[in-house]
Amino acid sequence: MSDTAPSASSLGLTEKLEWLARPGATALVVSGLITVFAPLILTVYVSFFDDKVIVFPPQGYSLAWYGSSIPQFISPLLTSLKLALLAGGLSLLFGVPAGIALSRYRNRGTQGIGTLLLAPLTIPGIAIGLAIYVFAITVELRTELPLAGSMALLVLAHVLITIPWVIRICLASLTNHDRVTEEAAASLGASPPRVIWRVTLPAMRNGIVASGFFAFIISFENLEISLFLVSPGMSTLPIAILQYLEYRLDPLIAAISVLQIVGIGAILFALGNFANLGRVAR
C-alpha cells in the first residue's frame, strides 16, 4: 500500500477510505466473500441436481430431492428443534443473570468465574462429549440414575456449550449500558431484583434476543457433543446428515441443508428488525 499522502484539505470520506478501497484490499474482500459464500451457493445449486450422485455438470435438474428430504429427516429434525429450544431457553435462564453479574460486579472473583464460564468455548467439542459420556456412566454406576443417553444430560451438555455465547453477547450489550437509571431506581427504593427486572433486562432486550438465537443455533448445529450423548434410536439432524453421508452422497443432503438455510434465514430476518444481530459476536 502506497504512502503518497493526499493533501489534507482534499480529504473526504472516499479518500479517507482510499487505502482500504484500493484494488489490493478489494481483492481481499472478494476472496473472503467467495470463501464464505461459495460452498453455500454450491449447496443450493447441487440440491436441484437430478442425478443420484453429485457429478458436475449434472445430467438434469429437478425438485424431487426436496420432496424426499423432509420425510427422511423429519424425526431427527424435530429432535434437534426440541433440543435447541430447551438448551437455548435454559441457557438464557442461567446465562443472562451471569452476564449481568459479570458486568456489574468486577473483581478478582467474578473475573475468575467469568473465565470459567467462557471456557467451554475453548475446549474441543469431541473431548467434552466423550468426557461427559464417560463421567455420566461413572455417576450412573454409583447412583443408579439413568444418566447415559438421557435427554436431560444431552440438554445440559448443550447448555454448557451455549452458555459462553449467551454471556459474551450479554456482556457486549451491557458495555454501553448506563448505570445511572439503575442507581436512580435503587435510590427511589426499588429492590435489586426489581431494578434488574424493570431497568436492566429491558435495556438488554436486543442482547437477550440475539443471545437466545445464537444459543439455539449453536445447539441446533452441534455434532461433536451430541454424537455420544444421544440415546439409542434417537438422532439429531447433524448426526443424521453425517450418517447419511457415510452411505450416500446425493443431492438429498444438499436439499435438506437448503431447507435449513432458508428456515434459519427467515427467522433471522424476522428477528433482525428488533435485534442488531450484527453486533452479537463481539
Binding site: 464464505v36 461459495a38 460452498p39 453455500l40 455434532l223 453425517l242 441443508s257 430476518f269 444481530l277 450484527g278
Partner: peptide, 26 residues
C-alpha cells in the same frame, strides 16, 4: 446495511458438514 449484516450471520448457522459438501463439488 442491516440486511448485509444478517447475510454475514447466516453462514454461521450452516453446519461444517454441509459446507464441506459444497467444497467437495468444487
Amino acid at each position: 446495511k442491516n440486511a448485509v449484516m444478517l447475510l454475514m450471520v447466516l453462514p454461521l448457522f450452516v453446519s461444517s458438514t454441509v459446507r464441506s459438501i459444497g467444497w467437495m463439488v468444487l
